[in-house]
Design a protein around this nucleic acid. Sequence first.
DNA 1: CAGCGCGTTGTGAACGGTCACAATTGTGAT
DNA 2: ATCACAATTGTGACCGTTCACAACGCGCTG
Lengths: 347, 347
Amino acid sequence: MKTQLPKDRAPSIRDVARLAGVSHQTVSRVLNNHPSIRETTRARVTAVMEELQYRPNRAARMLVTRHSRTIGVLSSTSAQYGPASAIAAIEDAAREAGYYVNTANLSTVDQESISGALGHLMDQAIEGLVVIAPQVRVFDVLARMSIDVPYVSLQSTGHAGQRALSVDQIAGARMATRHLIELGHREIIHLAGPQDWIEAEARMRGFLGEIDSAELPTNPPVLGDWTANFGFRAGRELLRTREFSAVFAANDEMALGLLHAFRDAGLDIPRDVSVVGFDDIPDAQHWWPPLTTVRQDFREIGRRAVEVLLGEVSGNPVAARLQLLPELVVRGSTGRARSLAGSVTQA
Amino acid sequence: MKTQLPKDRAPSIRDVARLAGVSHQTVSRVLNNHPSIRETTRARVTAVMEELQYRPNRAARMLVTRHSRTIGVLSSTSAQYGPASAIAAIEDAAREAGYYVNTANLSTVDQESISGALGHLMDQAIEGLVVIAPQVRVFDVLARMSIDVPYVSLQSTGHAGQRALSVDQIAGARMATRHLIELGHREIIHLAGPQDWIEAEARMRGFLGEIDSAELPTNPPVLGDWTANFGFRAGRELLRTREFSAVFAANDEMALGLLHAFRDAGLDIPRDVSVVGFDDIPDAQHWWPPLTTVRQDFREIGRRAVEVLLGEVSGNPVAARLQLLPELVVRGSTGRARSLAGSVTQA
DNA sequence: CAGCGCGTTGTGAACGGTCACAATTGTGAT
DNA sequence: ATCACAATTGTGACCGTTCACAACGCGCTG
């Protein structure tokens, strides 16, 4: 009982029109549910569409409307938990809003790689861009290429000219640091992330700010690369060269490496050293000891990014609160300070 | 010194043509580097393109050629390390080949969600599909929707009618199990993944096969959900209800949960219990104790998936070996068997 | 010198939607 | 019944590219 079609191509709007006995424009109107269509006509057209399994051709629509309904995501290290779950959330939210998502990964952060990825996205005629690789340099390139689409950046704490949407990294870092101070630690070392990452720099600022408020001696931070491997090596190095009773790592992975190194050296955590991480990835509660860390909700950030971006795209900006507050989660890796190699002179 | 353009729109092929003093078709030929173009003409056209910052309109091209140069990725749990790094690798490889990637996530695995995601991808006119959510049901829906594009599935060990590309899960599971047997363990429990996951089922088959070859008693596996939280609860439950000296977990996350539970119960690993995982995620080497596990190279799988898929798409299938061999990585979470609560009767 | 063939370039029509505008139909008031 | 006006539908052009085909120029052959 199927209606035969002349062409072998996918059915077009005109095929539907012919079979429904209307003009192609009417079909188009049904498609975009235009208000003034008689209910009976709409039903007839819809029926034919159903029968033909009609699917609008996105390319054609895109050609004339100049809307791709696609947003781009620029990301690095997208295999890590944080970025990965943010991306997943972005995709979900975008799809829900009828948008498509295209992701480009940055293998390296040289300018060529960045502009290559950006070019790839621009070819797609993206209408908006989410930047999850908040290295400073990315924004330079973004500016230089005169990208004309609106963009949001995750976790960049107001660095760019555009809207930035983020968990308040500075507040989070202060919470972590204050927690250690309140436990009586005075010699606290910060294992920071790469300093061309805006969020790494923000966490460092938060750390230094809090240390400063407490009028504690300033220990030079160690600059890491986010990985557990680095944390491990840094931990060994620290034991050889520094005096401290606590470390605040800029992310959970590096904290894990620290735990490993300290344990290998025969130290008891948190009796001998306290460790705080940042992110609260799902594994962290199962580590040994379970990690005290600062939780940020990556999925929520992703969702909001899309919300803000689509608001921007459609011309009526969302007045959403752009800063989310992170939350300190105290577990077994932190405890009261006692003397290890140095520290503890206080009241 | 810039040449003024009449329109405010992005420059088109005809704008370039006019300025270069050629026909639009010639410009098109340059674009697709057609052989018979005089070198001088090509140079002239290229120069104008450069000056105008011309970018071909993908929608227009797509409309007429019916090629989207886009491949789709259907994935679930894309925040986990394995899928996430495979996706990243897919994107890299695709971009290198001049293709675009569109990902759709499965929040739930009901049929509606699956066909919704698939529909989203089909709207994009994808030319090929990579399935990373190898639940059996996905393939049912795939068949029912009569998806007409070629697809590869990751880690599905030859379940589907189409090409499957994977690490040999069965071999990996056998390696892990054999390792435990060789250490003298006789009461080995398998903490399996959800059985609607093809790879979970394959790992279970490998485990059972190896147990069978060694003529050991068969312990009923425990069915989990891949998460560390589940592993933790399962670990506590096992200690209450079962006798065993080793557990083979179907992935590293669940193994982590086990370690946590066993440690909480005051057990020493590996003296009292041995634990093996699967995947070798980067963190696993830093856990306590460092996890013995089966390594599979997710990036490589992703790369190959694209290779195979693009071969299929372009009509000349790649004759690549589709099975990769995983590798056993022995670390601190496994050791020789001794009596715990049961077991150890052997020679 | 006509004619052939090849390399190179141009012409006009698609592709499948939307847009602007015109045309038709229906409705209520006069 | 008539008219104004709104609701509904139709017509043709256009978006930017590729495709099929035609045409041009030029050297070479006979």
